[in-house]
Design a protein around this nucleic acid. Structure first.
Lengths: 226, 226
DNA sequence: TGCCTTTCACAAACCTGTTATGGAAGGCCG
DNA sequence: CGGCCTTCCATAACAGGTTTGTGAAAGGCA
């Protein structure tokens, strides 16, 4: 979290409240400073005063949006100007929210939470991860260590189920129930074959085997050797 | 865009402004009505009055967040209550923004644009882009790598929907609902044919195929090989 | 008529469940 | 401790089935 504010008293107040909520707080005192810090390390969110030395908050916001790396970084504008035309301009220049001074710390925190809640699910709600393995449910894609992996429908469902319960061992019967459905009647060995195909696909890139075979019990997603 | 508001005058005002900005507007007059309409077809955004018959806006908002399908639907609360504790509660129950009556239409529109820009960059612009593909909604034109592309009405709507949710996989049923409307009764294979024509048109210039087929799942706009 | 949409039929691509075989792991007994 | 045996698992190949691509034909609508 980066706070860009040139008034020391307000900066202190903000830092106090933010740290109290568990955020790591970085500070910048003018617009150029802020852009440099963002360049160096992209924060989770930027609190941006409207009136700043060197570069106005609005200009900083525009430059953030123009930058591809940090382009969708959440920005909350902080300002003494409460007039409507300013508010419209603030939002239209790309800020995600706009808080008018004087504000109550509680309201600001609520707005920060709201903005973050909006951002996080968009990035992670439909994604399952395990180690370097990533499954994007919405895009129906699996990748590992930046390499895309192609899976057939059954292997996809199988991996999804394993990812939803990492490290847990499932018997072949449990996997048949969970992945194929409760009404199918298949050889339990069939599971072996699909596990093999899944392993083959997952390890194509050369990583360690992520599926552990538990003799006489079943399989689990778990990279550890024994 | 769904407007949930029990005061007819305000509803009319909102509809006028929203349609003027190019949104399709649906209406609901109480909370239960709203939830039903959302169930049936998920809108791009919900404008939600705080005080409603049958179910309060806050309760509606909570239920929306609880629903997995519509869980990250953008919600803007609309309310006469300007007190801080209410604002905090409103935001914390999951609303993405909170506008106090009386509000100016301009500010509301700016906030809507801000929220949409965050969640669905696609919907706030008049131009949809994906890679070298460009769709101009206003001019109803599509082009790729500087070559104009002619599409029939259905292919246009199909591509528009895919562009609004890039990389996401849609089943044939979902596409029929979203592109043809919720009440049509067509063969799911009809989608294949339109996808094929869309592909043909898009690839005429020789570019890579932008539509990914996901076996047993559907189609997605996504250029990577898989 | 001309364009667009929908359906159909067939072919191609791909996926799936099964089986056969060989190898590994663990237990039992001398 | 070592050898043998049993049980379990990994692998490969295959035949059949399902899903998708494709071309064409029939029907609608302006």
């Amino acid at each position: 979290m980066l706070v860009v504010e040139d008034e020391p008293a307000l900066l202190t107040l903000l830092r106090y409240n933010l740290e109290h909520e568990g955020f790591e707080v970085g500070e910048a005192v003018d617009g150029e400073d802020a852009l440099l810090m963002i360049e160096e390390r992209i924060p989770d969110l930027v609190l941006l005063d409207w009136m700043l030395p060197t570069l106005s908050g609005m200009e900083v916001c525009r430059q953030i949006r123009r930058n591809t790396e940090a382009g969708n970084l959440p920005v909350i504008m902080l300002t003494a100007r409460g007039e409507e035309s300013d508010r419209v301009r603030g939002l239209d220049c790309g800020a995600d929210d706009y808080v008018v001074k004087p504000f109550s710390p509680n309201e600001l925190m609520a707005r920060i939470r709201a903005v973050l809640r909006r951002l996080r699910p968009a990035l992670s709600a439909n994604v399952l991860e395990f180690g370097d393995l990533v499954m994007d449910l919405a895009a129906h894609r699996v990748s590992r260590a930046d390499g895309a992996i192609h899976l057939g429908p059954t292997e996809f469902r199988l991996l999804k189920h394993l990812l939803e319960h990492p490290r847990r061992v499932f018997s072949r019967e449990q996997l048949l129930d969970a992945v194929w459905g409760p009404d199918v009647f298949l050889e339990t060995r069939t599971v072996d074959v699909h596990v093999r195909r899944l392993r083959q696909a997952l390890n194509k890139g050369g990583g360690a085997d992520l599926i552990r075979t538990v003799r006489a019990a079943g399989y689990a997603l778990d990279p550890e050797k024994s």
